[in-house]
């Protein structure tokens, strides 16, 4: 069986689509000969040429803005921002242009671009290399924010993101780039966007998470099962727009919900989910919705990062307290 890692799945999806869509280009810092600092674009320039897989100057604003211009003229640019810590200068282009070009021109021009960036902590990286700030992008109308949590979802969701007619910020949890391998058939089949994935059905409590934290949530669910608590685990996958239907249906059955994210707590995506549960699912709740998140601190340098990031133990504690609530 041909098993691959998440980063290999990203590479495979890029290669598949480059081979099947002449309008697609891959661009960014060090994505050419070097194949990207994490090797997401390894071998692509050799295979598809320097016109379609190219290094840009070291300038994030123009990487994003150039993508807008290319997409508006019918290309499908997939641009890499080397780390999420360097994505912030692209927000002007993403918020003011990419996400609203279709709306501004009443559909005359559109912006089918993908901005990929590795994000999240846990790999003892230098300063500015470990933050999880997906909520900044989730606030932007007209944009999609997608986060895979496994090799197979990275492959299928990235294909969907590239083919989507609107801009997508595709955030790759770098802590699990090489954590485990999965068999991923290179069949070009995309997974649906705007939909959660129920990774584990359960009857007692719903855990909602995304990205690398899915790994800790799965561990917590297994440990909880040993203690007789049957957890339903939902991978949000598309952070924006939010598939509340799946979450409400699940919580409607379980009556209890724990949301887990690595990002800071205040105004995190978990806050939106909790608010929507309060607005639309209050009557089915048997306990307060709980969030297990990073703290509202600056992401600490790596000597302390394990204390910042939600652990399996913290998730289990929240699960147990939610189960015990009467």
């Amino acid at each position: 069986m041909n098993e691959i890692t998440l980063i290999e799945a990203v590479n495979r999806a890029l290669a598949y689509e480059l081979a099947h869509d002449d309008s697609m280009v891959v661009m960014g810092e060090d994505v050419g000969v070097n194949g990207g600092v994490f090797r997401a674009t390894d071998g692509l320039q050799a295979r598809f040429g320097r016109e379609r897989v190219f290094d840009t100057p070291l300038a994030e604003t123009v990487i994003a803005g150039m993508s807008v211009g290319m997409a508006a003229q019918g290309l499908r640019p997939v641009a890499e921002i080397q780390f999420m810590g360097f994505i912030y200068s692209t927000i002007d282009q993403i918020l003011n242009h990419a996400s609203r070009l279709r709306n501004r021109t009443r559909g005359r021009l559109s912006c089918p671009m993908v901005l990929r960036a590795p994000f999240g902590g846990g790999i003892h990286a230098p300063e500015h290399h470990s933050e999880s700030t997906e909520a900044l992008f989730a606030h932007i109308p007209g944009l999609r924010v997608v986060i895979p949590s496994s090799p197979s979802r990275a492959y299928g969701l990235l294909l969907a993101a590239i083919r989507d007619p609107d801009p997508v910020v595709f955030l790759e949890p770098k802590r699990i780039y090489r954590l485990n391998k999965q068999a991923v058939e290179d069949n070009g089949e995309a997974l649906p966007l705007d939909s959660c994935f129920v990774l584990r059905p359960g009857a007692d409590l719903t855990v909602v998470s995304w990205g690398a934290m899915i790994h800790e949530c799965q561990q917590a669910a297994e440990l909880a099962a040993e203690a007789g608590v049957d957890i339903e685990l939902i991978d949000l996958a598309t952070i924006k727009p939010l598939d509340m239907e799946t979450i409400l249906e699940s919580v409607g059955r379980t009556g209890r919900c724990v949301i887990v994210h690595e990002a800071a707590r205040n105004c995190g995506v978990g806050a939106e989910i909790a608010a929507r549960l309060a607005e639309e699912g209050l009557m089915s709740l048997m306990a307060p919705v709980r969030r297990v998140t990073g703290y509202d601190t600056v992401m600490p340098l790596f000597r302390l990062e394990e204390h910042y990031m939600p652990s399996t133990a913290r998730i289990l504690q929240a699960v147990n307290e939610t189960m015990e609530y009467v």
């Binding site: 280009v25 604003t61 123009v62 994003a64 803005g65 150039m66 993508s67 807008v68 211009g69 290319m70 997409a71 508006a72 003229q73 019918g74 290309l75 640019p77 002007d92 282009q93 003011n96 242009h97 501004r104 021109t105 009443r106 559909g107 005359r108 021009l109």
Partner: peptide, 29 residues
């Protein structure tokens, strides 16, 4: 901004100079 003619032209850019990035992207295309 939904012009009837020159439909590949960009609409005006209010955020100053942000259109310079679009121009180079369009030129690449």
């Amino acid at each position: 901004m939904n012009f009837n003619e020159s439909r590949q032209d960009f609409p005006v850019a209010i955020p100053i100079a942000s259109q310079a990035c679009h121009a180079v992207g369009a030129a690449y295309a």
